[in-house]
């Protein structure tokens, strides 16, 4: 895909959560699928995440969170994106997020939530389809 513009993804860990096995696996999978991936490392505030996303001009933000702070932190990222008029960036989430929280998160602007057991291809296909639109 040399002539095409590569899909750019920011993978981020909001909050204080240190579980990064999943996010690193996803980073690698997306890169192997031909995307450009930037990983923030741990302990990112919503402000830092949105700032990096805008500066790096990404198409997608993939947020990984397993600490249970998703209902507080994820809508904040969505709100800041809106403030920055960067709502074209697709906001995805993965980690330990109970099914019953997903409707709330979607209402707040999270496009999709990928729970434990999601295959890497599911995430890759979702992002490719989104960016092809």
């Amino acid at each position: 895909m040399t002539s095409e513009k590569k899909i750019r993804v920011l993978a981020a860990k909001p909050g204080l959560d240190g579980h990064d096995r999943g996010v690193k696996v996803i980073c690698r999978a997306l890169r192997d699928a031909g995307m450009e991936v930037i990983y923030t490392g741990l302990r990112q505030t919503p402000q830092q995440i949105v700032k990096t996303a805008v500066e790096e001009d990404v198409d997608v933000i993939a947020l990984s969170i397993l600490s249970g702070a998703h209902n507080e932190l994820l809508p904040k990222v969505a709100g800041l994106l809106k403030e920055q008029q960067a709502e074209q960036i697709s906001l995805l989430a993965g980690g330990i997020i109970p099914d019953s929280d997903i409707p709330y998160l979607k209402k707040k602007g999270i496009k999709e939530v990928f729970g434990p057991g999601t295959s890497m291809n599911t995430v890759i296909d979702y992002i490719k389809n989104y960016c092809a639109r």
Binding site: G15, L16, R43, T45, S67, G68, A69, H70, E72, L73
Partner: peptide
Amino acid sequence: DLPTQIGYDSDDPMSEGEVGKV
């Protein structure tokens, strides 16, 4: 919880959303 493990008090802005969670 994570704020305790990382040395933040509960009222620290960095603790937002994490107090008492894990």
